[in-house]
């Protein structure tokens, strides 16, 4: 059943995969993300993070406040690489 429940919609990761990864020893959001990519898609973990936390809590007995949140880096919205590379977007800030 767990292989039919999607936790990370962007990267198509199932609950079975998340739970197996936690059982294999990855018990932080960052570790799980690095192994199975959940939270690395367009929504950047906004949809799945809470559901992954619940699985970590269920398997390890950790409390919510003990689960470290991954660093939120810019950009917070998707942008075109072409725009990022445009010369007029590279003015110096100082």
């Amino acid at each position: 059943m767990d292989d039919k429940i999607i936790i990370c919609f962007c990267e198509d990761i199932t609950r079975a995969e998340v739970r197996q990864t936690i059982k294999n020893g990855a018990t932080t959001l960052d570790e799980i993300k690095r192994i199975i990519r959940c939270g690395m898609g367009p929504c950047q973990g906004k949809t799945c993070e809470e559901m992954i936390c619940r699985e970590i809590m269920d398997i390890t007995g950790k409390k919510k406040e003990d689960i470290l949140i991954p660093t939120r880096r810019p950009p917070t919205s998707s942008i075109l690489l072409a725009d990022a590379a445009r010369s007029d977007n590279n003015e110096k800030t100082s």
Binding site: M1, K4, I5, I6, I7, F9, D12, R15, T47, C48, E50, M51
Partner: peptide, 9 residues
């Protein structure tokens, strides 16, 4: 928020 259930995609 989203919740997990079978075939939730």
């Amino acid at each position: 928020k989203m919740i997990p259930f079978e075939n939730n995609d």
